[in-house]
Nucleic acid binder design. Structure first.
Length: 589
RNA sequence: GCCUUCCUAGCUCAGUGGUAGAGCAACGGUUUUGUAAACCGUCGACCCGGGUCCGAUUCCCAGGGAAGGCUCCA
């Protein structure tokens, strides 16, 4: 067994290992079925995954979902035959002979030879033999429930320089019930999709005229602004100073920063008649460096924390755009912190504390990842990099934070710590990031005067907490399924007058709430109460205030919460107190 | 960018080689309502451009846009 796979399996529970073997077997059955149905098809590879399995193959004819029925039928046949799965180690030379017609397998065999590992094969009865490290079930009959899910194109080794193969995704379980449950979960997750909810709740939209660039509708912008407001208050408390700088910058700025060499092809460019090219800002750091440099700085100024939320544009490849989760226009809750070398550690701790504070408010799961030097795309010398990576490793370990390492994922100017979150479909997204940068300050010739009166170059920490506001809101929508906490929700209260007789009273309440800074709407339509409630429920309003003749006469309100429950208090003053307390408690504690 | 699929009214969806039908929404009227959909009526659409055809929303080609996927180890 290969080292990588071995490591992976040892991390799993026994239950997970069993499922892994099951799915690996199902994948093997899929491949054999494909091979039986389409003899000219060449298998490339096919692993089990946490959700199922997939199989990559090279085939000139197109397989589509319309073919699934036929393929599943063949898979069923192999399962019913209950063929034994027999593992056998073979010599390199022999393996090369067996798979001589399959260049993908031969490449794998070379790789195995290079690593000095054993070549393992599996036989499925007399039907088929395949290069495979296992583990597998003992026989095909043990696969009790499976389903093919989708087809896709996938590059060999994920590299677009290689040939594009076809991929079939599927999943398998030990029982039909588990399979049905899994499919149900997927359907449920789709209901939380931020793209769907964004439209239903009128939060944002996209338009053909600017793909990947969101239009923020009034309700979505309310959420956006609340997040920025909270960010601003918390950062002022922690000594950050906010700046704003040009969106268009001459090419020369990005030549200085190094982005011209490393990033220009992913930037939008604005051409001028006679002043050359301007780059549309894709990152904030170069402008922050300019601000640092506009006057003499002293060691007393450090750490100097410059924050901003300027709009950024990046020319992301069209196929990668994904609702709010990958866009071409966005804003970050960005900051650049200039520190002396001995301040790195304590400033990182400060940043981690902000992360903890921010994320705990939303009760979202997240994980850390350290990205190290990319050998093909980095600036500066290896020694400085090694030092920076060592520093980050040390800080993470001492903070007791669990993290994974992704080699080569650093920014071109320095290693970084990313914070990841998952969307409703379980896909991971990079949210916050904290990057250490020894390079750019040198290139910008940034300096400060230290205690002894000599000039020193500061170190820059680039950091975002939400990440991009756009992506963060996308994740939030899915996390809350549109049921935002009251402090964030676009409409906190909706007043539902029972009849037209109650409009005046309803409006007087509306004005009081609005004057008190509560986001309130009134449903003046000539509709039944049932319809008004249904409507407000679907808009996911936090509180509904129902006012009819009874309330009007007694000068009270009747409060219905989003979960269908009622509040006992029936005075407006009490209600205002309750809602304000709810908001404050969430943000302060 | 590449692969697959998709694009019909503001939204959700029908449907067809002879230019489309519904529900919700919107608008007008009736009703004046007690905790998730009152009733009647009106308005409103085949993503864009070519081609094939007597005729294209439907078939073909090109474009635009969207969704899922594109290194989880044989």
């Amino acid at each position: 067994m290969s080292k990588v796979l071995d490591e992976k399996l040892t991390k799993m529970t026994l239950e997970e290992q069993k499922l892994w073997a099951l799915r690996h077997t199902a994948e093997h059955i899929l491949h054999t079925s494909l091979q039986n149905l389409y003899p000219k098809l060449k298998k490339a590879m096919g692993p089990a995954t946490p959700d199922g399995f997939y199989n990559d193959f090279d085939f000139d004819e197109k397989i589509t979902e319309a073919d699934f029925e036929k393929i599943e039928k063949e898979m069923k046949r192999l399962i019913n035959l209950d063929l034994p799965m027999i593992q056998e180690d073979v010599k390199i030379e022999e393996a090369k002979k067996i798979f001589k017609n399959n260049p993908y397998k031969l490449e794998w065999i070379d790789e195995i030879e290079k690593r000095g590992e054993k070549v393992s094969t599996y036989k499925m009865g007399d039907e088929e033999i395949d290069l495979c490290s296992g583990p597998h079930l003992n026989s095909t009959g043990e696969v009790k429930a499976f389903k093919l899910l989708s087809v896709a194109g996938a590059y060999w080794h994920g590299d677009e320089k290689n040939k594009m193969l076809q991929r079939v995704y599927g999943t398998a379980f030990y029982s039909q019930k588990e399979l049905a449950n899994y499919l149900y979960q997927i359907e449920e997750a789709k209901k939380r999709d931020h793209k769907k909810l964004g439209q239903e709740l009128e939060l944002f939209m996209f338009h053909n005229t600017s793909p990947g660039m969101p239009y923020w509708l009034p309700k979505g912008l309310t959420i956006y602004n609340e997040l920025v407001k909270f960010w601003r208050i918390e950062h002022i408390k922690r000594g950050y100073q906010e700046i704003m700088s040009p969106i268009l910058n001459k090419k020369e700025l990005y030549i200085t920063s190094g982005h011209y060499d490393h990033y220009w092809s992913e930037m939008f460019v604005a051409k001028t008649e006679d002043e050359g090219e301007y780059g549309v800002k894709a990152m904030n750091c170069p402008n922050a460096h300019i601000v640092f440099d506009h006057k003499n700085r002293s060691y007393r100024d450090l750490p100097l924390r410059l924050s901003d939320t300027d709009p950024l544009h990046r020319y992301e490849r069209s196929g990668t755009l994904n609702g709010l989760l990958r866009v071409r226009e966005f804003r970050q809750d960005d900051a650049h912190i200039y520190v002396s070398e001995d301040q790195i550690e304590s400033e990182y701790k400060n940043v981690f504390e902000i992360v903890k504070k921010f994320y705990s408010i939303f009760d979202i799961n997240y994980s850390f990842r350290l990205g190290t030097r990319n050998p093909e795309n980095f600036m500066g010398d290896v020694k400085t990099w090694d030092k920076a990576e060592k520093t980050l490793n040390k800080i993470l370990k001492e903070s007791g934070i669990e993290y994974e390492i992704l080699d080569g994922d650093g920014a071109f100017y320095g290693p970084k710590i990313d914070i990841l979150m998952k969307d409703s479909l379980g896909r991971s997204w990079q949210m916050g990031t904290i990057q250490l940068d020894f390079q750019q300050p040198r290139r910008f010739k940034l300096q400060y005067i230290d205690k002894g009166g000599s000039l020193k170059t500061p170190i820059a920490i680039h950091r975002v907490i939400y990440g991009s506001l756009e992506r963060f809101i996308g994740i939030l929508i899915e996390h809350f399924a549109g049921n935002f906490p009251t402090w964030l929700t676009p409409v906190q209260v909706k007043i539902l007058p029972l009849t037209e007789r109650n409009l005046n009273y309803a409006n007087s309440i509306f004005k009081k709430l609005r004057d008190d800074g509560i986001r309130v709407e009134i449903d003046e339509r000539n509709e039944t109460l049932g319809e008004k409630i249904r409507n407000a429920q679907m808009e996911k309003i936090s509180y509904m205030l129902i006012v009819g003749d009874k309330e009007e006469k007694e000068k009270t309100i009747s409060v219905r919460c989003r979960d269908g429950k009622s509040l006992e208090n029936d005075s407006l003053e009490d209600f205002i107190r309750i809602i304000k307390k709810e908001i404050e408690e969430k943000l302060i504690n």
